[in-house]
């Protein structure tokens, strides 16, 4: 029997696989340097939590979380239509801050900084997923579906068009392709799955607050994408295991607290620096960071 602590960590691995694989679709495969992914994660978490607390069935809330996040994804692409590279990164980061500000200040809906406690566990076809094992199956199944879905996308002609958008947008437009529509679709799919990940997260941890969807999370997601390799599904999955589980090892070393925090941060930094120095394309990446 698997230890419940390991089950708990594997559930988080599943949630982050959904997040990172979907981020890689926009960032790696389409070339959209999107730092607003964490906002879609938050939008999904709050949508699902608020709907279920209002009495909406979980399955409806689950898909709504993805749809609402997807709509915001479309709006973000619309607003950043003429931006790319660093400018797009800064604007999408700004979007994350806007969403954070709305979540923290719209107290009547979100309870602001108090957060939303007591989010019910998911109920599917009359069965309430309460045990860790069942939740791991649920999160793992969703993660597997998302990975397969994105795998089929990138193998399809549409996926090749996304990669062409990343590599030579102008060339693609000369060939008569609507690159804006391609970016919209990629961002909406990416945001949809980030919203779904938010729902899985909120109903597992049962408490969310705006602080859970801020800069630290997007840095974590980007670290995983870079370590795994940009535009590599396999890399994203492997790197999620590494980045989520390695810091947990520190808990078994009984380090003094004055050392623990810096060591945790240094671990991420060391992994990133090592990747940049020795494997600039990440563990399994196909394109350079530049």
């Amino acid at each position: 029997m698997i230890n419940p602590y390991l089950i708990h960590l594997l559930i988080f691995v599943g949630i982050y696989i959904i997040l990172v694989v979907s981020l890689n679709l926009a960032l790696g495969y389409t070339g959209l340097l999107n730092l607003g992914h964490v906002a879609f994660f938050g939008i999904g978490a709050y949508t699902s939590a608020l709907l279920v607390k209002a009495g909406v069935p979980f399955i409806t809330a689950f898909f709504s979380s993805g749809i609402v996040a997807g709509i915001f994804g479309y709006l973000l692409v619309l607003a950043t239509k003429k931006l790319k590279g660093d400018y797009l990164a800064l604007t999408t980061l700004g979007f994350s801050y806007v969403v954070y500000s709305v979540l923290i200040n719209w107290g009547s809906l979100t309870r602001g900084p108090l957060g939303l406690p007591g989010i019910p566990k998911p109920e599917l076809f009359g069965y309430v997923i309460t045990s860790g094992e069942a939740y791991l199956l649920f999160a793992g199944f969703i993660a597997l579906l998302v990975v397969l879905f994105i795998f089929f996308i990138i193998q399809s002609p549409f996926g090749r068009l996304l990669e062409a958008t990343r590599d030579d947008e102008l060339g693609l437009r000369v060939l008569g392709k609507n690159t804006f529509a391609l970016k919209c679709k990629a961002m909406m799919i990416s945001a949809f799955f980030a919203g779904i990940a938010g729902s899985v997260y909120a109903h597992y941890i049962t408490y969310i607050d705006p602080g859970s969807f801020m800069l630290g999370e997007i840095i974590l997601m980007l670290t995983i994408v870079i370590v795994g390799g940009i535009a590599s599904l396999k890399g994203s999955v492997v790197a999620t295991f590494l980045i989520i589980l390695i810091p947990e090892l520190l808990r078994f070393f009984h380090l003094p607290s004055s050392v623990l925090g810096p060591v945790r941060q240094m671990l991420y930094a060391l992994i990133l620096i090592s990747i940049v120095l020795f494997r600039p394309r990440g563990l399994f990446g196909r394109i350079d960071l530049a």
Binding site: Y5, H8, I205, Y207, S212, R251
Partner: peptide
């Protein structure tokens, strides 16, 4: 003792470890 850095996700990790390990 476990560190959670006052972060809900880390608190979940810490409490799971405390309870099950």
């Amino acid at each position: 003792f476990e560190d959670d850095a006052m972060n809900p996700k880390m608190a979940a990790d810490a409490s799971q470890k405390l309870i099950t390990i």
